[in-house]
Design a protein around this nucleic acid. Sequence first.
DNA 1: TTGAAAGCGCTAACAA
DNA 2: TTGTTAGCGCTTTCAA
Lengths: 339, 339
Amino acid sequence: MAVTLKEISRELNLSVTTVTRALYGYDDVAEGTRQRVWSLAETLGYVPDTTAQRLRKGRTDTLGFVIPTFGPRFSDPFFSEFLAALGNEAARLGFDLLVSTRAPGAEEQAAYRRLVEGRRVDGLILVRTRRHDERVQYLIERDFPFVAFGRTDLEVDYSYVDSDGEAGFRQLVEYLVGLGHQRIACLSADPELTFVAHRLTGYRAALAAHGIRPDPNLLIQADLTQRGGYEAAGRLLDRAEPPTALVCLNDLMALGAMRAAQQRGLAVGHDISVTGFDDIPLAENAHPPLTTLEQPVYDIGKRLCAMLVRLIRGESLDDAHVLLAPNLIIRESTGPVPM
Amino acid sequence: MAVTLKEISRELNLSVTTVTRALYGYDDVAEGTRQRVWSLAETLGYVPDTTAQRLRKGRTDTLGFVIPTFGPRFSDPFFSEFLAALGNEAARLGFDLLVSTRAPGAEEQAAYRRLVEGRRVDGLILVRTRRHDERVQYLIERDFPFVAFGRTDLEVDYSYVDSDGEAGFRQLVEYLVGLGHQRIACLSADPELTFVAHRLTGYRAALAAHGIRPDPNLLIQADLTQRGGYEAAGRLLDRAEPPTALVCLNDLMALGAMRAAQQRGLAVGHDISVTGFDDIPLAENAHPPLTTLEQPVYDIGKRLCAMLVRLIRGESLDDAHVLLAPNLIIRESTGPVPM
DNA sequence: TTGAAAGCGCTAACAA
DNA sequence: TTGTTAGCGCTTTCAA
């Protein structure tokens, strides 16, 4: 089917070796030969076989990314943007991107093993790290190149980029306290997720700093989706003494929470304040526009990609542990505590 | 580094041939031999080298998907869900998924060539087909296996699944006319996109069927994003004689349009009606919840994946041209025309 | 029941 | 400047 070096060499009465070298610009090939090779390769439409090159070179020039999906109706703008960053940057660096989609759990672990042990990729990008992340443990154990968006609680060293969710949430809650809020609820999620734990720490620290006793009833755990936010907010708002502010772990939850509030006739930004995290494009276009903490997802993805490629190439990283301060964006979903 | 067949065979004083056959359950291997092979493979953690298998077998067992991204802040729930479908289904069928992200244009075309001619994938999935789609043309020309979400205007035969956007828009516009709307604007997009053209046809047909003269001022072209919808709606609403209904090409645009209306003090669902297409999860959680046409993106992705694998395996398809009727979901963003 | 040999397409060390 | 040889790791004839 496809044109091979062998055919070109046969056609020109040359050895396969000479043809390769002519194509790759080695300087020990006669100019005339090179030209003949090039022109025939051109007319025949020769393109080297990637698989053969990979086998020979012992590397795949492919990066792996396993997207943690949750159920079939998976839709998180966070991941779209992150994926776009990885895709563009990987291509720029000459790498393919192999993507799997798997819900966290045994199957996810199997997917990682498949990629690593089948030598399908040269390196991996992890997201949504967990405090005791088996993926990190496994990859460290096998000494396989990887980078992660997020930290863990493991006593191991690896390369990551992360947002400083603790600082972000502290700043956010202080802003709300400054507006007079005292009953500040947190729509949290599985605290085994490192970023959840960090943000919660920031939330608690800010309350403590202002002498506000943390009310366990105001801390509720939900899915990191609109539905999760919607349901959790509903439960909080139906309490006898509802909160005046809903601090959500991410923007998606916040959008759901806003809707729950609005269904109860509350004017978001007046009767109740709602906040998110991420600054997905929807945040700005929500009604009202959402106050949130921005993290530069695209840049983070791009940066992680570049870091990973350096690791794969055995180059050193100037900064293997990057912590970025998220940026508080105040919009109209927050306001002074109602009288 | 990794364990190879050679090592196992050396260790057991067997030939490489016998080891492979023992591992793959050929019945011409002595039971004792098989057990010794299996147990050693187990302890050494043998996993076959994917690249070597690929070279030998002449196939990659990989599907390719090039996501059309538009700018860095790319975020479209449609693609998240579609990607999840592809990822899950490909894995189920024993295929890897190679993902590229590229804005339509020359670079996109290059990405396709890279995948096809470098023999990186065995088949491709296309989305957002265009009326004169160079990708389709190219793949047909090269006789390369592919399936597409969407039709084209080309006189060629290929396998696709598509939503019947024309029928959907006709039904939708008739519903609006039934509510008394006459000044129904359409927030459209590049009509070179086949699905845009189809939906527009439905829009026009419904107007014509009810003797409503199409007003060119009410047909406006924008990006398929929230921002696109927001800006286009703004321009329409600021007219001297604004429309009473905004029919948007997709949900994202509709969300933007709703916001533009709300910023102008209009109550969506009362003062103005807004509709979308897709039924992304956000549609239900919008404020007010969005009237839209649902298309089963996940199922379509799954189905396309299965079709493609059949094509790659040279099996026949019972139905290579699938047209699905979208489902009109009436929520609160639409209502009778205001007095 | 096992092994030898060939080859997928490419690259690289070495020799001529 | 070019060719020979070897081999990446695997699978599959074919022969023993």
